[in-house]
Design a protein around this nucleic acid. Structure first.
Lengths: 355, 355
DNA sequence: CTGAAAGCGCTTACAG
DNA sequence: CTGAAAGCGCTTACAG
């Protein structure tokens, strides 16, 4: 039974019988370090050392304190510990979403790595709107994390300024910029767009279209796509921008809209693999051969896509590597090691059947 | 420029010239509530009220304090606030993984809902092993969350006992039990297994097999599957258990192993849709017609599966609803509203082409 | 509507 | 290797 209250008698410095004039702040709130200390016959600071620097405690003392901890079921209060030491042992991860997306891989690996290093992860979902990004950041910073993972680089300048000033390690991810706030692990969406354009051009595409979400990174891909096509003299590009989250159904609906814009449409660059699958489905229903009559390129390389839709080309990005690399950046910095500021993990165009 | 230090002169109670005999604990650590209070000409408690109960502050005072907060860029320290008030405003979510899984939907919606209610989510990934579940729980409890979402119900009795004793709202999810720790939102894996067995029996399957991960919930599905088949006189069931994470490749490899065990294999129940896609791919390669020669049932209903693999049957579970419902359970409890202890969200067998 | 004092449960910075 | 005192930055519980 680990729930016996430490009796007043066990406390050597117990004063008179009555409790002193101490205003109660709520009832008893669970075990404190002093409870463990009293039972183990040591000072609170020694119990603290058992948790935070056991190598500085004598073996017998260590053992005795640990037994008491075990018996009582004591769990240190890290709110108090963090406040006192200015080490929250918390890392924040701010991502748009973790549902149906490669971000979930990044967060997964990031979290595992941080966890192994003794940190815990505060998850903050920003959605795709950055209207309330300031509010979200305030909420995150109020926890005093020791580091922050951000998704993307498109923040307002006031935000970037604030983040630079908080003086904690920050990794931006999933994008590329010459002027990161601090560190960056990502790739160029603009380059991806250009690479897909080139892929289409190699296939002698004449009337390419695009369907994607209208977030910053998707738009950067679009711009790269358009620019490369413009170099080849193709300037008329059918385009459907949709609000996130994208889905198979949205992709399906998009194809007819694109064809209305460009009746001779012969290629579609999709903002995600789900959209690509939708476009593929609609193409089949219309009797269009893929990729010979209609080339389709997705983005993200969900594993299933590789397997079930060999007609699709897609752009593979290694979300796992981003998460791992971002975690290492932060951990190195926290360990006082200086780190390369920008890491480009690149991307890979996965071509399938050529039809 | 929000980085001017509040001058000592602005502080009315500034004592002598020299700082008193106060041991420094680290350098200056950023803005404190007293900095805002001094500049706004109010007591710290008033600044506190501006954040925590603005309706109790006079409009002009409110405005003045907010201006100072804005100007200084002050962000309250919630480690301190949480310690002082015993309200951490933190909720923990403990899930096996968020990569490639329906859990990510649950966490997504759970997190969004909690966020809207003013809580932040601490993400703890347990993996599929529960060897270190105690350690993980200690780490979580050390943050003094106000509620916990757990995945599954298969915890050691000592763990269940500890959780019951911490006295905070707890929701178990993604499983079903008659004796939850506190609240539960889930469904019966055993029933799912039985339902899939019945589906196969309706198709006059004779030699069903199973490939799945060997975690608790997958094994519960297996047991339901076997029991229902046993009732129909089918007791020989080819079985491949694999370590998580499951993947398309693992599914592919599994089919030949199953066929070695049962050469006349005519149905496979897969522990996930990725496995099912792998089995489907392998079946095609072997020239087996799906589902006429080999019926395949997955689990999870990833959106793509519905679209790209109409030959597959799958079991749909609403991870989104679980997340939302779990969040509401916790929020209601935190608001003092008593809540139904167990919610069965059920599942849905999605049959496709009968081929 | 506002504030002075005390306390939340730890750890730092010394000191021995 | 161990400990007494002070402090981390807030909020509670009063009091006015």
């Amino acid at each position: 039974m680990p729930n016996d209250e430490p009796s007043a008698a066990a406390s050597p410095e117990a004063p008179e019988a009555a409790t002193p004039a101490r205003r109660m702040r709520g009832g008893p709130k669970g075990l404190r370090i002093t409870d463990v200390a009293a039972l183990a016959g040591v000072a609170p600071i020694t119990v603290s050392r058992v948790f935070n620097s056991p190598e500085t405690v004598a073996p017998e003392t260590l053992e005795r304190v640990r037994q008491v901890v075990q018996k009582l079921g004591y769990v240190p209060n890290r709110l108090a510990g963090g406040l006192s030491s200015s080490r929250s042992r918390l890392i924040a991860a701010i991502v748009p979403t973790i549902a149906h997306s490669l971000f979930s891989e990044t967060v997964q690996v990031f979290s595992e790595t941080m966890s192994r290093a003794g940190y815990q992860v505060l998850l903050a979902l920003s959605g795709y709107s950055d209207s309330n990004e300031e509010t979200l950041l305030d909420a995150v910073l109020s926890r005093r994390p020791e580091g922050v993972l951000l998704t993307g680089v498109a923040h307002t300048e006031s935000l970037r300024e604030r983040l630079r000033n908080v003086g904690m390690p920050i990794v931006e991810t999933w994008d590329m910029t010459a002027t990161p706030i601090d560190m960056l692990v990502g790739f160029s969406h603009h380059q991806i767009g250009a690479a897909v354009a080139e892929h289409f051009l190699r296939r002698n595409v004449r009337a390419p279209g695009l369907v994607s979400a209208n977030d910053d990174r998707a738009l950067a891909r679009r711009d790269g796509f358009r620019e490369r096509l413009a170099q080849a003299g193709i300037r008329e590009i059918a385009e459907v921008l949709v609000a996130p989250p994208s889905s198979v159904a949205v992709g399906k609906a998009a194809l007819s809209t694109l064809i209305e814009q460009a009746p001779d449409l012969d290629a579609v660059f999709c903002g995600s693999d789900l959209l690509a699958i939708g476009v593929l489905g609609a193409a089949k229903r219309m009797g269009l051969a893929v990729p010979s009559q209609l080339a389709i390129c997705g983005f993200g390389d969900l594993e299933f896509a590789t397997e079930t839709t060999p007609q699709l080309t897609t752009v593979r990005v290694d979300g796992t590597r981003i998460g791992l690399s971002a975690a290492r950046c932060l951990l190195d910095r926290l360990a006082g090691i200086d780190k390369a500021r920008v890491t480009d993990v690149g991307f890979h165009l996965v071509e399938r059947e050529t039809g």
